[in-house]
Amino acid sequence: MTDVLAAVLLLSGGLICLLGAIGVLRFPDLLSRLQATTKPQTFGLLLVLAGTALRLPAEAAAGLGLVALFQVMTTPVFAQLAGRAAHRTGNVDKGVLRTDELREHR
């Protein structure tokens, strides 16, 4: 039963990481690709970690919890910095944005 659950978690985590990689290839501009690189990867990694934790002794699983926590804490910071820098330097494809209320207030 644990094996089945671990397999489901590992496979779905891998699949979601794959979807993120497809997004990096297919999305049109920096901001949308930034979404694809950071977000599905985080969720995919969480699933993979959960799947791995099921197969490990409890004290090793605690270390994986730390990996998950730091990933969840650092990824948004990176995404935010990169995204804001891109927007401030004008590296935004205006054809992709339907509305940009931030530009309207500059």
């Binding site: 979807l19 297919r26 999305f27 049109p28 339907r98 509305t99 530009r103």
Partner: peptide, 16 residues
């Protein structure tokens, strides 16, 4: 986001 990546790709639209 995964579905948009596969089905829409370059045609995806965003907003701020």
């Amino acid at each position: 986001v995964g579905r948009d990546a596969v089905l829409l790709g370059f045609r995806v639209r965003a907003a701020i």
